[in-house]
Write a protein that binds this DNA or RNA. Structure first.
Lengths: 250, 250
DNA sequence: CGCCTAATTGAACTTGTTCAAGAACTGTGG
DNA sequence: CCACAGTTCTTGAACAAGTTCAATTAGGCG
């Protein structure tokens, strides 16, 4: 339901710029210098010593693992406000790479641990983020284990659209900064299948393409049905919350 | 690599009965009465108000979600020592059900939160468990997104075998308490595919069946290769640690 | 404006699913 | 202790969804 990855720790209700109750963790990074990464540049690689934590200010990141013969699995895309690099292990368990140009701040692991562990405000916030990511991971497992290609793509577009609408850019144009290969590696499909389904959704009028990296969702309700949220979710408090709030102007 | 589910929070090095550095969380449950669940009985359902947390003493649990038309995804199997029901939400996000006869203890969420949040020993332990589960979730995503049916089944058997060997029951007989349907719903396959692959592994001599709910791993190295740990993992500290330690008497 | 990469589209193929029997285990009761 | 019943598991054959391989097209950026 969410596209946030594991260990990426974003609150679903996060709105960049809002320094509200849920955004205390940003204070840990506030004094750090701003860094910049160009598209394709890696923040760190799987196996690197996990010395730092990062918070994204601007741009989008992909986080992935590679197995044996080069198969890649993107475990998540990270957006402004998200934390990157949280781990109890000595080394990072995945690679983090810029999709777009990215601005971020970093702190050392020690510094982060001290500040968060010492603060009765920050601790529960971190834990809440972890829980949200756990939930996102479970949803992704459901998607990968049991959803059809069309349901996967629909779910993905829906998650991105919801995130965008939560960020109050009232415009209906949804940005898809990642490539088709990124989408495929996130959804456990091939590039060709993703492409075919995007085409099909477009020709059915569910979405409209605006170049290759932006779409308009023309039929949100239909997209929800295609995503496999048809029957179920009646007793799922999150799904209910979502369907009650007017995500788009229907 | 591990079969622990999300929010199930077991430390990989956990050994039941060992009251060592990593097992302080058991103390939270120690005074509670022991409860018993028969096979098939649910501890709680997805959507129930999340009032309690549980720690398993004995037996195996499955944790799952259902989507729309009845498709089921098992997000994990839980073993003695594991915690069940950790969530920041008002309601449980999944159903937890006994596979075998299960003994466990429960505490209220409030009680758990107080005790853990008040203890500088317990807090990092809980966080470490969360991180382990996050790692397990990522591995499961890799499995579901990019591994073949044979790799999935091999990975699963390997994880179970490693868990068993870590629990120092030196016997080579590995218990598989769950049904083929459970395995299928965990691995994103059908019952028939799981069955065919188990048969194939047996006829190739990689494993030997002992009834339907126990196997002997006859060729651990071959199983590792089939699981897709062939090339990669050279710079993966965990994989390296595993392959260095003699998990079985080769 | 033109090149180069990314995306689309088509056709053949593969893997795993579905549907349909049949066999084997488990647990119960005689 | 054995037989029976019910379920779970196995096996086979047809099928389908998604992949693979191979061009072709289209965007985007210089």
């Amino acid at each position: 339901m969410y596209s946030e990855p594991m260990m990426a720790l974003s609150r679903q209700d996060h709105v960049p710029g809002e320094i509200g109750s849920g955004e205390g963790l940003a204070s840990v990074f506030r004094r750090q210098a701003e860094e910049r990464f160009e598209p394709g540049a890696a923040l760190f690689w799987e196996g690197d010593v996990a010395a730092h934590l990062f918070q994204i200010i601007e741009g989008v990141l992909r986080v992935y693992k590679i197995i044996g013969d080069g198969r890649r699995v993107i475990t998540g895309f990270l957006y402004p406000g998200d934390l990157v690099g949280l781990s109890q292990r000595r080394c990072y368990l995945y690679t983090a790479e810029a999709v777009t140009r990215v601005k971020l701040r970093r702190v050392t692991r020690n510094r982060f641990d001290e500040e968060v562990n010492g603060s009765p405000t920050l601790r529960p916030e971190l834990f809440a983020r972890l829980s949200d990511e756990m939930e996102a991971a479970q949803d992704q497992m459901v998607l990968l284990a049991r959803k059809s290609a069309e349901e996967r793509v629909a779910s993905f577009l829906l998650a991105i659209a919801r995130r965008a609408s939560a960020h109050l850019d009232g415009q209906p144009l949804i940005d898809l900064p990642m490539t088709r290969l990124d989408m495929a590696d996130y959804l456990g499909l091939t590039i060709e299948t993703v492409s075919r389904i995007m085409t099909r959704l477009t020709s059915r009028g569910v979405i409209a393409a605006s170049g290759r990296h932006a779409i308009v969702v023309r039929q949100p309700l239909k997209l929800e049905i295609l995503a496999g949220e048809g029957d179920d979710g009646a007793h799922d408090p999150i799904a209910v919350a979502y369907s009650r709030q007017a995500v788009w102007p229907h």
